[in-house]
Design a protein around this nucleic acid. Structure first.
Lengths: 354, 354
DNA sequence: GTGAAAGCGCTAACAT
DNA sequence: ATGTTAGCGCTTTCAC
């Protein structure tokens, strides 16, 4: 192979334009202290030669690496990928972030890190040492992992924590899970439902709790009781099945159920079907996530849409801004990208309602 | 922010182990000419200090960048992402390639490049100059773009061409599209179908043609005529609708249709429903792609499964091997990762068949 | 087998 | 406003 050198370097541009390296560098970075005339001359040389700075070299000289590291939970990501259930979290996260990166001359690198492992810290440090990213994006459950947060804070790398409100460094972004749960609950209450069940997600995720709280608050607001209407799942289909059964086989079953993930809602739908309950005539359903499959079920599901792509893009944007402005120029308060409720055909007034 | 230096460099390791930088480098790369004792000492220092080489520095000194660039068509990828139809091409491609990269200490970077643009070449060169990847993965339709292929060949960067058989550099990987179409056709013929229609994909993709050829050959093999049984689409839902109508509204409509993408098959299913044709009793359907949605349609679709993740992983593997062994150590013949046929409930014997 | 020296492409700090 | 200098962390000669 032989050592492949950069085809055209800053040196070629400098020679061509008849200026110093530093001037070229200034032009590249739009820095002041360059006469318009020179700037133009340099730019012309850059265009002519097709010069593009090497990010390796840029990183070497202590400036930015132009890399944003997006970290996801290994097990869950691989499981979703293998299952091919249409979960498009990775897709949304990657594209949303990637396009925003591209707009700023950055790249996004996806990395999987174990959750339940003693190596978490080492894995993360290895990725950071190897890549020297300018920013890191954490997703649940890593967003709330104290080890990870601490490592990043100690390294002084700007980082975003999606789906977290915890303290300890970096900045947070949420889709206002409580508000979303509230909206879903009030939507059902507005249709006349009085017994609205809720299937919670894994307690390992902070947002699971927020959603439950949002539901609880909305129920209180509507003057409805919540007793016997909460079941706990872990986002998976199997857990949804169990939770749905617990809810529907009770003495006073709910007439509507909100489940904290599409998989759990799918399980609830199937459970209802097996029990001879027609959706939405006899049971209304609202899902969380709004992954592609919910449009293909019978009936298509009303769902809270997680704006992952947008959150990812926002995170990138803020990270890059933070890098430019100095380490602590990150939002102090959590950034909220509100979720929307997409109404489809799984919700209707309860049986016997006018 | 201040210039962030590498926390622990090769120098620290060398000092800690009491050896030269060079010896550490040799240990890292498993090179010969190091006594076992020294090797151990160095390794111990590496572990102790948690040293991980900076890929920027590695790249700078002319060795590998440990980066593989995966290039996809911008328009199609963004359209798929926005549409949220459950197309998991990106997911499969990324995870498959990424995990293989990780196994070799590499990273995969995703990049979108325009197809129909005068800038293709410049976009690509910019990405290469910035990243200096050790290998590039091309997907259709870029795999057959002579400009791109030529640029890569000229730069002496090993590259993989997925879904291509064209010459001009790099190496090819396919899922044996002709064979897959043949399998699908014979499956239907075996059920007793004699009029098996085929909806082709965009002619811009070489594999579209291969699939048609596979179908044609299989039809001949089974002694069946193909006249009036071929319609052309472009992989999209809309085009599938048109093609399905053309096929089904003819004088002698097919009793089975193979469509070159899930979207087109979905469109065919819907068209059949509107015409009052029951699937699979009156019309059998076989799809291409096997994205998640085909399991959620009524009925679930029998489909040719595109082993994207595996192809992506193979491409990475071969690229890395090529880099190690020298530029031309790439497969001369196309690498075939055969597609499978996943039988579901959209195929049955034709009406009036014993 | 091991080490020392040179330099990759770029930028920060310091001249001028 | 522009140029010069000194590395960044690593690998590649080449010497021993």
């Amino acid at each position: 192979m032989g050592r492949r050198r950069q085809a055209v370097t800053i040196r070629h541009v400098a020679a061509d334009a008849g200026v110093s390296l530093q001037t070229v560098s200034r032009v590249i970075h739009n820095e002041p202290n360059v006469r318009a005339e020179l700037r133009e001359r340099v730019q012309a040389a850059i265009d002519k030669l097709g010069y593009v700075p090497s990010i390796a070299a840029q990183r070497m000289s202590g400036s930015r690496s132009y890399l944003i590291l997006a970290i996801n939970d290994r097990d869950r990501t691989i499981a979703d990928w293998r299952a091919r259930q249409g979960t498009d979290w990775v897709d949304q996260m990657l594209l949303g972030g990637m396009l925003e990166c591209a707009a700023h001359g950055y790249r996004m690198i996806f990395e999987l890190v174990d959750t339940h492992s003693a190596h978490v810290e080492r894995e993360l440090l290895a990725a950071i040492a190897a890549l020297q990213p300018d920013g890191v994006i954490l997703t649940p459950p890593h967003s709330d992992d104290p080890h990870i947060v601490e490592v990043l804070a100690r390294q002084h790398i700007p980082f975003a924590r999606i789906g977290s409100l915890g303290a300890g460094g970096g900045f947070s972004l949420t889709m206002d899970d409580a508000g979303a749960a509230r909206t879903a609950t009030l939507h059902l209450a507005g249709l006349g439902h009085r017994r609205i069940g809720f299937i919670a997600g894994s307690p390992e995720y902070a947002l699971s709790t927020w959603r439950v709280e949002g539901w609880r608050a909305a129920m209180a607001e509507a003057g409805l009781a919540t007793e016997g209407l909460l079941a706990e799942g872990d986002f998976s289909y199997a857990s949804g099945e169990q939770a749905a059964r617990a809810l529907l086989e009770g003495e006073e079953p709910p007439t509507a159920i909100i489940a904290s993930s599409d998989q759990m809602t799918l399980a609830t739908l199937e459970t209802a079907r097996r029990m001879g309950l027609e959706v939405p005539r006899q049971l209304s359903l609202v899902s969380f996530d709004n992954t592609p499959i919910v449009r293909f079920t019978q009936p298509p599901l009303t769902a809270v849409d997680q704006p992952i792509a947008e959150i990812s893009a926002r995170a990138v944007d803020l990270l890059i801004a933070a890098k430019k402005a100095g380490e602590d120029a990150v939002p102090a308060a959590p950034v909220v990208v509100p979720a929307g409720l997409v109404e489809r055909q799984s919700t209707a007034p309860p049986p016997g309602h006018a």
